[in-house]
Simulated assay, not measured.
Amino acid sequence: MATPVVSAERLAASYTYSSYRQLIDALQAEGKTTGPQQSELLTNYTRLNVQRMSRLDKTVQLLPELRETLAQVRKPYAWLIITEGWCGDAAQIVPVLEAVAQASGGTITTHYFLRDENLDLMDQYLTAGGRSIPKLVVLDAATRTEVTSWGPRPATAQQMFLDLKAQNLPFEEFSTQLHGWYAKDKTQSTQQELTDLLKSL
């Protein structure tokens, strides 16, 4: 018998999307961000990320194929999402995950966990040994056992990330190029990979 990834109590104590966003806004009002590391740089990234999330909340249009696939999902799933307010990739992806869950009619519920407050969870889902986020862990809602996981970013963006990292670019240039890709892609790659994930369930 597979072991539950989290206890029922811990899952119930997680953030909803709404409470996650409210937490970030409240910290921003104090000039802070999520996590133990605090700096003006991270606070500025978070401010940008709030704008990104707000824009995506209003503009994400789910692909017809994704909606059709979602309609075939009958079994309930809990999506455990590991994130942080300062993470630019999370800002580009988390609103899409939430939009998919909202469109599921209750079949999929979302549960947000801050990475640095839940390192025991994060360390089960490392990417090449790193604590890359966002990370989606799909759980069977009844047993809380892992079905599959996804993240931290679509394959094309991940390859771009690795290529840029290999060039040792200054972070600003690195970040500009990566977010430029997200802007051009308009969530299509994330949605396509989530469609494939849903088909595999």
Rank of each mutant, 00 (worst) to 15 (best):
E98D: 13
P95D: 03
D120R: 07
T59H: 00
Y77S: 06
P95E: 03
A157Y: 05
A101L: 03
R74W: 02
K135N: 14
L139C: 14
D140M: 05
L139Y: 12
D163Q: 05
Y112H: 08
L139R: 04
Q158T: 13
S149C: 09
A155D: 14
G130Y: 12
A103N: 06
I108V: 15
E65T: 15
T145M: 05
D140A: 09
C87A: 04
P76F: 00
D120N: 14
V96E: 11
I82P: 07
V138K: 12
P95H: 03
F161P: 11
E146H: 08
N118K: 08
R144T: 06
S104Q: 15
I81W: 03
A90P: 07
Q72A: 05
K135T: 15
L97A: 03
V94T: 10
D163S: 04
T143D: 10
A71N: 12
R67T: 13
G151W: 02
F161Y: 14
D140I: 01
L70E: 02
E117N: 14
Q159G: 06
I93F: 00
E68M: 04
H111Y: 03
K135W: 06
L126Q: 11
P154Q: 09
F113W: 03
A128N: 08
L121C: 08
R131K: 12
L114T: 05
D89A: 09
Q159T: 09
